[in-house]
Amino acid sequence: MYLALFIFFAVLCVAGALNLLLQRHPINSALSLIVVMTSLAVLYLLLGAQFLAAVQVIVYSGAIMVLFTFVIMLLNAGREEHTRGSRAAFLVGFPGAAVLLALLVQIFLSARGHLAQARLGEYVTATHTLSSVLFRDLLLPFEVTSVLILIAILGAVALARKEP
């Protein structure tokens, strides 16, 4: 049951990600991104990370995607024009990506016997556990993230401000 759910949403997630790249209209890409985010939330839930799943739906599929869609509609972005693509991408990029993928698959398969088993659906991480990791062990990275967000805001204002 859990395995079937996992396979379904994993395939949906990858298909959504591919569709995101292949669509020509930005709004279609944004909608595929919602599919990706939501299926990721289900995967989190299957792994027992219920809080993370909820946050994923609320923040990513909800808030951020609404913002994306608004921006696309406000800018009135049309269909994008496709170029031929660079030859370097075809000659080096695709084979490179394929080699990397093959390498990773090979390594994951060869190490299969030694990997810890993820128990789908049988395990629930309490929010309490998450918060003790986040606010005690990883307190400093958590706090430092605020500087990161501040920089992003500052940069957005500096780069997008109307030119005088």
Binding site: V144, V147, L148, I151, A152, L154, G155, A158, L159
Partner: peptide
């Protein structure tokens, strides 16, 4: 911290 340093240099 790598991201902080990188994103500020991108901008």
């Amino acid at each position: 911290s790598l991201e902080i340093s990188s994103i500020s240099t991108y901008i």
